[in-house]
Design a protein around this nucleic acid. Structure first.
Length: 592
RNA sequence: GGUCGCGUAGCUCAGUUGGAUAGAGCAUCUGCCUUCUAAGCAGACGGUCGAAGGUUCGAAUCCUUCCGCGAUCGCCA
């Protein structure tokens, strides 16, 4: 990473102290805005009072002092209260050298011996296929894991599969009634879609029965509770818990189908997990925690036998941990899961990628772990993200407005294919290369569209027009990458000389400066769990490169050394695009 | 009602720890392919940064109040 801003700040601080006795605030050095000349800008306002100088006068003196004492600083200008410093082209040439030589491209090698960072994401239910909300979750989780890895962290990716409970029993009951032995093969459906079909079938039948009961004079509420198919599902859950062989066999079968379906969707999304946790196995884990909490006096057993914790000191109210019948609740399972993970991995921290509707839950979870005295509880983080909504509003499965993940990915590829063919971009490609390209572009467009938005914000997704392939999009960046790769291929047969001694012109310095920001951006994005920073950085870099490319011929120059230099700069931009997009889970094509 | 989050151009979004004239893309309109890929580039149009106060040399950014939207406040997960 560049240490120039720190050196400027230190030198300026020393000068301010020596000449005016000013100790604070520390000089703020920031990248110069592009409409002004210079690379780094020092803000003078805080010192005009104590120094009794005008901003202009102070800027002139400090600028001259910095030129004097820092070899890299070539010149300066003062605009209002801002001191803009320009650096020697030679400095930028050296920065480019350093970046090209950095095999980790702004990151660090993974420390395999370090305590890992656990990233939990996806965490689906097994009663229906993945939808657009899951897509945002998976993309965020995957990208966060990739970024952490890129800055040298060891990462463990996990998911909790919610494979038990009333929801899956609903699908099972409906399958028993209406399935007639159908399988994914006979139905020609992905397993998760087949199971989801019966979840919908359950709901349809359930509603029908409610209407029937109401016609017989029942009120809405009692009809809802007494519908035979619901009672059947509840009974099936009891049988499941008792280990009924037939129910367990059906459960196993249907879950297998779902996992096979999920595997396909995960593969399409390019996400993976090092370890799966199944709720059917972890839901008992919390019991030991309850005992521990009781013996520590952190939890309290009430006369009816239920166990509670009082978090009113944290303004989180009282929270139930064990029902009076001794069964555990969600938060208890999560406590148990967290503890067992700490035993499994000895992680330094853990990030849960879960929607913002569960913010309260995680506040409670973390508070309880702190109360129990786990020092690592402070290193747990809920990456809370906003909802993906449609132009009409929230997606509702009951109204059929849910955007299915598989359908969406498929449509993206279709759109990419149509557009590529229309533009005649695929001439000379064989079929396999075409398919790979359509996939890269379609998925890239979707992934970029989702990841460029700050995770905390809700986002609007319009299936008909949201995904563009022009402008601030994944394909725009992929296209620029392909152009650079094309230059590199062409240059191979040109036998270019060394770039040594060629100094970057002002326009090239702009590009090098942007490259110089990459390492810092990557680091902030990773520790801030925010892929949007990477997405927006890479867009800026791409725009700058395209502007440069437009009036800087890379390979057609009188001086072949200039060509060599520009090619090298282009290649480094290309490599950075590839790296950054990779962290977003997006591949860049060699040609398009 | 309590708590948390969000509110920036017609639409979708950026806006680093408070700094310069609030930026992109889409859409609309103008130009640019006989030199490396036009999924590109250059330009025009478009804003009382939800509102009002406050802090500050300086506020889209921090504080307060209000308005709007969302989430949450289950022995669901």
């Amino acid at each position: 990473m560049s240490e120039m801003p720190e050196r400027i700040a230190r030198t300026a601080a020393a000068w301010l102290l020596e000449h005016f006795g000013i100790e604070r605030p520390e000089p703020a050095v920031q990248p110069t805005r592009k409409e002004f000349e210079g690379a780094w800008t020092l803000v003078l306002f805080p010192y005009t009072g104590p120094s009794k100088k005008s901003p202009e006068a102070l800027g002139q003196e400090l600028g001259a002092a910095l030129v004097e004492s820092l070899d890299e600083v070539e010149g300066f200008n003062v605009v209002k209260g801002f001191l803009n410093l320009s650096l020697h082209p030679k400095y930028w040439a050296e920065r480019l050298d350093q970046m090209v030589a950095d095999v980790h491209c702004g990151g660090r090698a993974t420390d395999e011996n370090a305590a890992p960072e656990v990233v939990e994401y996806s965490s689906p239910n097994t009663n229906k296929p993945l939808h657009l909300g899951h897509v945002r979750n998976n993309l965020l989780g995957h990208s966060v894991a990739e970024m952490l890895q890129a800055i040298g962290r060891k990462v463990v990716r996990v998911q909790v599969i919610n494979d038990r409970g009333i929801h899956i029993c609903k699908s099972m009951v409906a399958y028993r009634h209406f399935g007639a032995g159908e399988t994914p093969e006979t139905a020609g459906l992905k397993g998760d879609h087949l199971v989801g079909k019966y979840y919908v079938a359950f709901d349809r039948e359930y509603k029908r029965q409610i209407e029937e009961l109401k016609a017989q004079g029942r009120d809405e509420e009692s009809a809802g509770k007494q519908a035979p198919i619901l009672l059947e599902a509840q009974e099936m859950l009891r049988q499941w818990e008792q280990g009924d062989a037939e129910v367990r066999a059906l459960w196993t079968q249907m879950n297998e189908w779902v996992y096979a379906g999920f595997a396909q969707t995960y593969a399409a999304l390019g996400v993976r997990f090092d370890r799966n946790y199944y709720e059917s196995e972890t839901y008992v884990l919390g019991k030991a925690v309850v005992e521990q909490g009781l013996s520590q006096g952190v939890f309290e057993r009430r006369p009816d036998g239920s166990v509670w914790i009082d978090l009113s000191a944290e303004k989180l109210d009282e929270k139930l941990l064990l029902r009076k019948d001794g069964t555990s609740v969600y938060i208890t399972q999560d406590l148990g899961t967290a503890l067992s993970r700490h035993e499994d991995f000895g992680m330094r921290s853990m990030v849960y990628v879960v929607g913002n509707e569960q913010e309260y839950h995680f506040q409670v979870l973390f508070a309880i772990l702190r109360r129990l005295g786990y020092d690592w509880a402070g290193a747990l983080y809920h990456l809370s993200y906003g909802m993906v909504r449609l132009p009409e509003g929230k997606m509702k499965s009951r109204e059929g407005t849910v955007v299915d993940a598989d359908d969406l990915l498929g449509e993206m590829v279709d759109t990419a294919r149509a557009l590529s063919e229309e533009l005649g971009k695929t001439e000379g490609m064989d079929e396999a290369e075409k398919q790979a390209l359509y996939r890269m572009l379609g998925h890239g467009a979707l992934k970029y569209f989702i990841l460029k938005v700050d995770p905390v914000k809700d986002m609007v997704f319009n299936p008909k027009e949201s995904i563009d392939f022009d402008g601030h999009t994944g394909p725009f960046i992929q296209y620029t990458h392909a152009r650079i790769r094309s230059l590199e291929r062409k240059a191979q047969s040109m036998n270019l000389p060394s770039w040594d001694g060629v100094l970057p012109d002002a326009a090239s310095v702009v590009l090098i400066r942007q490259l110089d920001q990459w390492s810092g951006t990557l680091h902030s994005a990773a520790v801030g769990y925010n892929p949007a920073l990477v997405a927006n950085y890479v867009y800026e870099l791409t725009k700058m490169y395209n502007a440069w490319y437009q009036n800087h011929s890379v390979l057609n120059n009188d001086d072949p050394a200039v060509s060599a230099f520009r090619l090298r700069l282009s290649a480094e931009v290309g490599r950075t695009l590839r790296k950054a997009m990779g962290l977003l889970g997006i591949e860049c094509p060699e040609r398009m």
